[in-house]
C-alpha cells in the first residue's frame, strides 16, 4: 500500500465562540486505508467532517487533499474534488425513491443542460441511462437492490444509512467520509455494513469513518485517530489505540463523570 497522504490537516481549528470544537488537529489519512475517527460525544468528530467537506470554515489551520490546499472551499465543490460524505443525522431526499436518491449523487458528473432536457437530446438520454444503470449497480453494492423504487423515508433505519452511502458513492469519490454509519443498527445490520465497507475499500477507495461501535472500528480500520474535547489524543493502528493510556482515560473519565 502506498504511503501517500490523500488527506492531511495541519493545526486545524474550529471554534464556536469560546468553544474549541476542534483544536490544532494534525492528522492524515493514507490512500487506500479505512481510517477511523473515534472519541467521546462532543469530541469534535462531526465538526471535523464539516470542515473537511467545506460545510464549516476553519478558524485556523489548513486542509490538504491530494497535496492541494483546499481550505475554505465551498461545500458543493467537495464532490467534484473527490470527497463525498454521509451524515450522522440521516439526510436522504425523503420523498424520492432510493434509485432517485442515488441518481442525484451523479449530479456533477453529468452534462445535461436545460436545452438537452427540454429536447431530450442524446446527451440527456446517455446521462439518464448512465445514472439508472450505474445507480442500480451501486444499490446492489450496498445490498439495496430490492428497495430501488421505495421512497427513502419508508425504508427501515439501517437501510437508510446504507442508502446514504450508495448515494455518496455515486459521485465516485476518492475519499468517502462516513459519519456514524452503524448508528442505530442491530448487530446483523452492522455486520452487513461492515462487509459493504470492506467491499468499497477493496474497490480502491479511501474511507474515513466516524463510529462509536468499537468492534466495528477495530475490525475494519487500518489506522485510527482519537479525538477528545477537540484535541487529537492518539493516532495509530487498532492495537496502539486500544492500549493507549490517554484513550482509556478519555473514555473512562467520561463514563465516570
Amino acid at each position: 500500500m502506498s504511503e501517500e497522504r490523500i488527506l492531511e490537516t495541519r493545526e486545524l481549528s474550529i471554534h464556536f465562540g469560546g468553544l474549541k470544537a476542534v483544536d490544532k488537529v494534525d492528522m492524515w489519512v493514507l490512500r487506500g486505508h479505512v481510517h477511523g475517527i473515534i472519541g467521546p460525544n462532543g469530541a469534535g468528530k462531526t465538526t471535523l467532517f464539516n470542515a473537511l467537506t467545506g460545510f464549516l470554515q476553519p478558524t485556523g489551520g489548513r486542509i490538504f487533499f491530494k497535496g492541494v490546499d483546499i481550505t475554505g472551499f465551498p461545500s458543493h465543490r467537495a464532490a467534484e474534488l473527490g470527497l463525498c460524505r454521509s451524515f450522522q443525522n440521516i439526510k436522504l431526499f425523503k420523498t424520492m425513491t432510493a434509485i432517485e436518491n442515488v441518481r442525484v449523487g451523479f449530479h456533477y458528473r453529468l452534462r445535461t443542460t436545460l436545452l438537452d432536457a427540454i429536447f431530450r437530446t442524446r446527451r440527456f438520454r446517455e446521462d439518464e441511462r448512465l445514472t439508472l444503470e450505474r445507480g442500480r449497480e451501486l444499490l446492489e453494492t450496498m445490498r439495496l437492490g430490492q428497495y430501488a423504487d421505495f421512497k427513502a423515508a419508508k425504508l427501515p433505519y439501517g437501510t437508510q444509512r446504507r442508502l446514504e452511502i450508495a448515494r455518496a458513492l455515486a459521485s465516485d469519490p476518492e475519499l468517502l467520509l462516513l459519519d456514524e454509519p452503524a448508528a442505530g443498527m442491530n448487530p446483523a445490520e452492522t455486520a452487513e455494513l461492515s462487509a459493504c465497507i470492506r467491499r468499497i475499500s477493496a474497490g480502491g477507495r479511501t474511507i474515513v469513518v466516524i463510529e462509536h461501535d468499537m468492534r466495528l472500528i477495530m475490525e475494519i480500520c487500518d489506522r485510527i485517530t482519537v479525538l477528545n474535547q477537540g484535541l487529537k489524543i492518539c493516532e495509530g493502528d487498532a492495537e496502539t489505540v486500544r492500549h493507549d493510556p490517554g484513550v482509556i482515560q478519555a473514555y473512562l473519565g467520561r463514563s465516570a463523570g
Binding site: T53, H76, A78, A117, D127
Partner: peptide, 23 residues
C-alpha cells in the same frame, strides 16, 4: 432530468444536496 432532480433534492434537504455536488 438532472436539473429537476437537483431542484427536488434542494427542496428535500439543501445540505445533502450541496454535499452531492449541487451548487
Amino acid at each position: 432530468s438532472r436539473i429537476g432532480r437537483a431542484w427536488i433534492a434542494i427542496r428535500e434537504d439543501e445540505l445533502a444536496a450541496r454535499a452531492m455536488g449541487i451548487p
